[in-house]
Design a protein around this nucleic acid. Sequence first.
DNA 1: TGAGTAAAATGGTATATAGTGGTTGTAAAT
DNA 2: ATTTACAACCACTATATACCATTTTACTCA
Lengths: 132, 132
Amino acid sequence: MVFFGEYSVSVTEGGRIAIPKKIRENIKGDVFILTKGFDICVAGYERDDWQRRTGDLMNVSLLEKDNIDKRRMLFSGANEIVIDDQGRFVIPKALISYMGLVTDRVKVVGVGDHFEIWDEEKWLKYAKKINI
Amino acid sequence: MVFFGEYSVSVTEGGRIAIPKKIRENIKGDVFILTKGFDICVAGYERDDWQRRTGDLMNVSLLEKDNIDKRRMLFSGANEIVIDDQGRFVIPKALISYMGLVTDRVKVVGVGDHFEIWDEEKWLKYAKKINI
DNA sequence: TGAGTAAAATGGTATATAGTGGTTGTAAAT
DNA sequence: ATTTACAACCACTATATACCATTTTACTCA
Protein backbone atom coordinates (compact mmCIF):
# COMPACT_ATOMS: atom_id res chain seq x y z
CA MET A 1 0.00 0.00 0.00
CA VAL A 2 1.70 3.12 -1.27
CA PHE A 3 -0.19 6.12 -2.61
CA PHE A 4 1.41 7.60 -5.72
CA GLY A 5 0.86 10.14 -8.42
CA GLU A 6 -1.10 13.29 -9.12
CA TYR A 7 -4.58 13.27 -10.66
CA SER A 8 -7.02 15.99 -11.65
CA VAL A 9 -10.69 15.23 -11.04
CA SER A 10 -13.92 17.20 -11.15
CA VAL A 11 -16.18 17.97 -8.20
CA THR A 12 -19.95 18.26 -8.42
CA GLU A 13 -21.89 21.04 -6.76
CA GLY A 14 -22.65 18.71 -3.86
CA GLY A 15 -18.97 18.02 -3.30
CA ARG A 16 -18.96 14.58 -4.86
CA ILE A 17 -15.91 13.22 -6.67
CA ALA A 18 -14.89 10.03 -8.41
CA ILE A 19 -11.67 8.92 -6.82
CA PRO A 20 -8.99 8.01 -9.37
CA LYS A 21 -8.59 4.29 -9.91
CA LYS A 22 -4.88 4.33 -9.12
CA ILE A 23 -5.61 5.82 -5.71
CA ARG A 24 -8.63 3.70 -4.98
CA GLU A 25 -6.93 0.41 -5.67
CA ASN A 26 -4.66 1.16 -2.74
CA ILE A 27 -7.60 1.39 -0.36
CA LYS A 28 -8.55 -1.91 1.19
CA GLY A 29 -12.32 -2.28 0.87
CA ASP A 30 -14.57 0.72 0.30
CA VAL A 31 -14.03 2.65 3.54
CA PHE A 32 -11.37 5.15 4.51
CA ILE A 33 -10.81 8.09 6.87
CA LEU A 34 -10.83 11.62 5.53
CA THR A 35 -9.55 14.40 7.77
CA LYS A 36 -7.91 17.80 7.78
CA GLY A 37 -4.36 17.81 6.47
CA PHE A 38 -1.48 20.25 6.69
CA ASP A 39 -1.56 23.34 4.47
CA ILE A 40 -5.28 23.56 3.75
CA CYS A 41 -5.76 20.19 2.14
CA VAL A 42 -7.70 17.13 3.23
CA ALA A 43 -6.01 13.81 3.84
CA GLY A 44 -7.23 10.25 3.34
CA TYR A 45 -5.96 7.26 5.32
CA GLU A 46 -6.77 3.59 5.19
CA ARG A 47 -9.01 2.87 8.15
CA ASP A 48 -6.83 0.17 9.69
CA ASP A 49 -3.76 2.32 9.30
CA TRP A 50 -5.54 5.29 10.82
CA GLN A 51 -6.68 3.31 13.82
CA ARG A 52 -3.25 1.85 14.37
CA ARG A 53 -1.47 5.15 14.12
CA THR A 54 -3.89 7.19 16.19
CA GLY A 55 -3.70 4.59 18.92
CA ASP A 56 -0.82 6.27 20.74
CA LEU A 57 -2.66 9.57 20.68
CA MET A 58 -5.50 8.03 22.62
CA ASN A 59 -3.34 7.38 25.65
CA VAL A 60 -1.82 10.72 26.40
CA SER A 61 -1.91 12.11 29.92
CA LEU A 62 -4.80 14.33 30.90
CA LEU A 63 -2.23 16.94 31.75
CA GLU A 64 -0.41 16.69 28.46
CA LYS A 65 -0.89 19.79 26.36
CA ASP A 66 1.71 19.07 23.70
CA ASN A 67 0.35 18.82 20.20
CA ILE A 68 -3.15 19.63 21.39
CA ASP A 69 -3.70 21.82 18.34
CA LYS A 70 -2.77 19.09 15.94
CA ARG A 71 -4.71 16.49 17.88
CA ARG A 72 -7.81 18.66 17.76
CA MET A 73 -7.44 19.16 14.03
CA LEU A 74 -6.80 15.51 13.30
CA PHE A 75 -9.71 14.08 15.26
CA SER A 76 -12.32 16.78 14.91
CA GLY A 77 -11.80 16.80 11.17
CA ALA A 78 -12.03 13.05 10.73
CA ASN A 79 -14.85 11.42 8.79
CA GLU A 80 -15.42 7.80 7.91
CA ILE A 81 -16.10 7.76 4.19
CA VAL A 82 -17.75 4.98 2.21
CA ILE A 83 -16.96 4.82 -1.48
CA ASP A 84 -19.95 3.78 -3.60
CA ASP A 85 -19.75 1.01 -6.17
CA GLN A 86 -18.92 3.51 -8.88
CA GLY A 87 -15.93 4.86 -6.99
CA ARG A 88 -17.65 8.04 -5.85
CA PHE A 89 -17.98 9.73 -2.47
CA VAL A 90 -18.95 13.10 -1.04
CA ILE A 91 -16.39 15.33 0.65
CA PRO A 92 -18.08 16.55 3.86
CA LYS A 93 -19.02 20.21 3.92
CA ALA A 94 -16.68 21.05 6.77
CA LEU A 95 -13.75 19.68 4.81
CA ILE A 96 -14.79 21.40 1.58
CA SER A 97 -14.76 24.60 3.54
CA TYR A 98 -11.45 23.80 5.24
CA MET A 99 -9.69 23.15 1.94
CA GLY A 100 -10.99 26.40 0.50
CA LEU A 101 -12.44 24.88 -2.61
CA VAL A 102 -13.26 27.58 -5.11
CA THR A 103 -13.22 25.93 -8.53
CA ASP A 104 -14.87 22.65 -9.55
CA ARG A 105 -11.56 20.83 -9.90
CA VAL A 106 -9.38 19.19 -7.31
CA LYS A 107 -6.04 17.45 -7.37
CA VAL A 108 -5.82 14.06 -5.75
CA VAL A 109 -2.20 13.35 -4.90
CA GLY A 110 -0.48 10.35 -3.38
CA VAL A 111 1.86 11.02 -0.44
CA GLY A 112 3.02 7.49 0.31
CA ASP A 113 1.23 6.50 3.48
CA HIS A 114 -1.84 8.62 2.62
CA PHE A 115 -3.38 10.64 -0.17
CA GLU A 116 -4.48 14.25 -0.22
CA ILE A 117 -7.15 16.30 -1.95
CA TRP A 118 -6.39 19.89 -2.86
CA ASP A 119 -8.21 22.69 -4.57
CA GLU A 120 -6.47 22.51 -7.93
CA GLU A 121 -5.26 26.09 -8.02
CA LYS A 122 -3.95 25.88 -4.48
CA TRP A 123 -2.02 22.73 -5.31
CA LEU A 124 -0.45 24.28 -8.38
CA LYS A 125 0.60 27.30 -6.39
CA TYR A 126 2.01 25.09 -3.62
CA ALA A 127 3.82 22.81 -6.03
CA LYS A 128 5.43 25.80 -7.68
CA LYS A 129 6.48 27.18 -4.33
CA ILE A 130 8.18 24.03 -3.12
CA ASN A 131 9.52 23.47 -6.61
CA ILE A 132 7.95 20.15 -7.51
CA MET B 1 22.01 -3.10 -13.80
CA VAL B 2 23.42 0.01 -15.43
CA PHE B 3 21.38 2.23 -17.71
CA PHE B 4 23.29 3.83 -20.57
CA GLY B 5 22.89 5.07 -24.10
CA GLU B 6 20.63 7.56 -25.87
CA TYR B 7 17.60 6.51 -27.90
CA SER B 8 14.97 8.39 -29.87
CA VAL B 9 11.44 6.99 -29.75
CA SER B 10 8.01 8.19 -30.84
CA VAL B 11 5.12 9.06 -28.54
CA THR B 12 1.49 8.48 -29.44
CA GLU B 13 -1.21 11.06 -28.83
CA GLY B 14 -2.13 9.23 -25.63
CA GLY B 15 1.42 9.47 -24.34
CA ARG B 16 2.39 5.89 -25.02
CA ILE B 17 5.92 4.89 -25.94
CA ALA B 18 7.81 1.71 -26.70
CA ILE B 19 10.75 1.63 -24.36
CA PRO B 20 14.02 0.82 -26.13
CA LYS B 21 15.14 -2.76 -25.73
CA LYS B 22 18.54 -1.79 -24.35
CA ILE B 23 16.89 0.15 -21.56
CA ARG B 24 14.20 -2.38 -20.88
CA GLU B 25 16.53 -5.31 -20.47
CA ASN B 26 17.98 -3.54 -17.45
CA ILE B 27 14.63 -3.43 -15.70
CA LYS B 28 13.94 -6.41 -13.52
CA GLY B 29 10.46 -7.68 -14.39
CA ASP B 30 7.94 -5.41 -16.08
CA VAL B 31 7.44 -2.78 -13.37
CA PHE B 32 9.34 0.37 -12.57
CA ILE B 33 8.83 3.78 -10.94
CA LEU B 34 8.58 6.87 -13.12
CA THR B 35 9.09 10.19 -11.31
CA LYS B 36 9.80 13.83 -11.92
CA GLY B 37 13.50 14.34 -12.51
CA PHE B 38 15.82 17.31 -12.46
CA ASP B 39 15.63 19.81 -15.32
CA ILE B 40 12.18 19.06 -16.69
CA CYS B 41 12.68 15.43 -17.50
CA VAL B 42 11.10 12.32 -16.04
CA ALA B 43 13.19 9.60 -14.42
CA GLY B 44 12.70 5.85 -14.22
CA TYR B 45 13.96 3.74 -11.32
CA GLU B 46 13.76 0.06 -10.57
CA ARG B 47 10.96 -0.42 -8.06
CA ASP B 48 13.01 -2.15 -5.40
CA ASP B 49 15.66 0.50 -5.64
CA TRP B 50 13.12 3.30 -5.31
CA GLN B 51 11.31 1.69 -2.42
CA ARG B 52 14.54 1.22 -0.59
CA ARG B 53 15.38 4.89 -1.02
CA THR B 54 11.97 6.16 0.08
CA GLY B 55 11.06 3.58 2.68
CA ASP B 56 11.86 5.72 5.70
CA LEU B 57 9.34 8.31 4.58
CA MET B 58 6.46 5.88 4.95
CA ASN B 59 6.44 5.64 8.72
CA VAL B 60 6.22 9.11 10.11
CA SER B 61 3.84 10.27 12.83
CA LEU B 62 0.48 11.69 11.82
CA LEU B 63 1.45 14.84 13.68
CA GLU B 64 4.82 15.20 12.00
CA LYS B 65 4.88 18.12 9.62
CA ASP B 66 8.61 18.51 9.21
CA ASN B 67 9.29 16.77 5.94
CA ILE B 68 5.81 16.99 4.47
CA ASP B 69 7.01 19.04 1.49
CA LYS B 70 9.61 16.48 0.63
CA ARG B 71 7.17 13.62 0.98
CA ARG B 72 4.58 15.32 -1.20
CA MET B 73 7.18 16.03 -3.83
CA LEU B 74 8.57 12.52 -3.93
CA PHE B 75 5.34 10.56 -3.90
CA SER B 76 3.05 12.81 -5.92
CA GLY B 77 5.57 12.84 -8.71
CA ALA B 78 6.01 9.09 -8.70
CA ASN B 79 4.03 6.52 -10.66
CA GLU B 80 4.21 2.77 -10.69
CA ILE B 81 4.42 1.78 -14.34
CA VAL B 82 3.73 -1.63 -15.81
CA ILE B 83 5.29 -2.37 -19.18
CA ASP B 84 3.06 -4.45 -21.47
CA ASP B 85 4.29 -7.55 -23.26
CA GLN B 86 5.20 -5.49 -26.31
CA GLY B 87 7.42 -3.18 -24.29
CA ARG B 88 4.97 -0.30 -24.24
CA PHE B 89 3.64 1.93 -21.44
CA VAL B 90 1.84 5.24 -21.03
CA ILE B 91 3.55 8.25 -19.49
CA PRO B 92 1.02 9.66 -16.97
CA LYS B 93 -0.56 12.99 -17.88
CA ALA B 94 0.99 14.87 -14.98
CA LEU B 95 4.46 13.79 -16.12
CA ILE B 96 3.81 14.60 -19.77
CA SER B 97 2.87 18.04 -18.62
CA TYR B 98 5.88 18.30 -16.29
CA MET B 99 8.36 17.40 -19.01
CA GLY B 100 6.82 19.95 -21.34
CA LEU B 101 6.34 17.56 -24.22
CA VAL B 102 5.60 19.46 -27.39
CA THR B 103 6.66 17.21 -30.25
CA ASP B 104 5.85 13.52 -30.74
CA ARG B 105 9.41 12.41 -30.10
CA VAL B 106 11.26 11.81 -26.88
CA LYS B 107 14.80 10.87 -25.97
CA VAL B 108 15.28 7.98 -23.60
CA VAL B 109 18.71 8.22 -22.01
CA GLY B 110 20.53 6.01 -19.56
CA VAL B 111 22.07 7.70 -16.51
CA GLY B 112 23.59 4.78 -14.67
CA ASP B 113 21.31 4.05 -11.73
CA HIS B 114 18.25 5.33 -13.60
CA PHE B 115 17.06 6.34 -17.04
CA GLU B 116 15.40 9.54 -18.15
CA ILE B 117 12.85 10.58 -20.72
CA TRP B 118 13.14 14.00 -22.32
CA ASP B 119 11.23 15.96 -24.88
CA GLU B 120 13.62 15.52 -27.80
CA GLU B 121 14.14 19.20 -28.53
CA LYS B 122 14.74 19.97 -24.88
CA TRP B 123 17.30 17.21 -24.66
CA LEU B 124 19.17 18.42 -27.73
CA LYS B 125 19.23 21.96 -26.41
CA TYR B 126 20.38 20.75 -23.00
CA ALA B 127 23.07 18.51 -24.43
CA LYS B 128 24.37 21.39 -26.52
CA LYS B 129 24.38 23.73 -23.55
CA ILE B 130 26.37 21.44 -21.30
CA ASN B 131 28.58 20.60 -24.26
CA ILE B 132 28.08 16.85 -24.43
C1' DT C 1 -47.03 18.83 16.46
C1' DG C 2 -47.41 17.68 11.91
C1' DA C 3 -48.22 18.39 6.92
C1' DG C 4 -46.24 20.60 3.09
C1' DT C 5 -42.31 22.32 0.76
C1' DA C 6 -37.56 22.98 -0.30
C1' DA C 7 -33.09 21.35 -0.36
C1' DA C 8 -29.72 18.03 -0.22
C1' DA C 9 -28.02 13.40 -0.56
C1' DT C 10 -28.06 9.21 -2.99
C1' DG C 11 -28.55 5.93 -6.68
C1' DG C 12 -28.72 5.05 -11.33
C1' DT C 13 -27.99 5.73 -16.49
C1' DA C 14 -25.84 7.58 -20.51
C1' DT C 15 -21.93 9.45 -22.83
C1' DA C 16 -17.37 10.84 -23.85
C1' DT C 17 -12.82 9.92 -23.44
C1' DA C 18 -8.82 7.69 -21.94
C1' DG C 19 -6.54 3.36 -21.44
C1' DT C 20 -5.46 -1.25 -23.08
C1' DG C 21 -4.67 -5.01 -26.10
C1' DG C 22 -4.09 -6.71 -30.54
C1' DT C 23 -2.72 -6.63 -35.63
C1' DT C 24 -0.10 -5.20 -39.23
C1' DG C 25 3.68 -2.75 -41.50
C1' DT C 26 8.47 -1.57 -42.12
C1' DA C 27 13.16 -1.25 -41.62
C1' DA C 28 17.15 -2.97 -39.59
C1' DA C 29 19.78 -6.67 -37.78
C1' DT C 30 21.09 -11.47 -37.64
C1' DA D 1 15.53 -15.12 -45.70
C1' DT D 2 14.07 -14.82 -41.12
C1' DT D 3 13.73 -12.56 -36.95
C1' DT D 4 13.45 -8.54 -34.09
C1' DA D 5 12.37 -3.75 -32.65
C1' DC D 6 9.71 -0.02 -33.16
C1' DA D 7 5.82 2.45 -35.31
C1' DA D 8 1.16 3.11 -36.79
C1' DC D 9 -3.34 1.87 -36.62
C1' DC D 10 -7.68 -0.01 -35.05
C1' DA D 11 -11.01 -1.93 -31.84
C1' DC D 12 -12.58 -2.86 -27.44
C1' DT D 13 -12.80 -1.96 -22.47
C1' DA D 14 -12.55 0.78 -18.38
C1' DT D 15 -12.95 5.05 -16.23
C1' DA D 16 -14.51 9.63 -15.40
C1' DT D 17 -18.08 13.00 -16.10
C1' DA D 18 -22.54 14.83 -16.71
C1' DC D 19 -27.16 14.30 -16.15
C1' DC D 20 -31.49 12.84 -14.25
C1' DA D 21 -34.63 10.49 -10.89
C1' DT D 22 -35.69 9.09 -6.47
C1' DT D 23 -35.18 9.19 -1.64
C1' DT D 24 -34.05 11.37 2.51
C1' DT D 25 -33.38 15.20 5.46
C1' DA D 26 -34.26 19.80 6.93
C1' DC D 27 -37.19 23.66 7.36
C1' DT D 28 -41.39 26.52 7.62
C1' DC D 29 -45.63 27.78 9.00
C1' DA D 30 -50.30 26.69 10.10
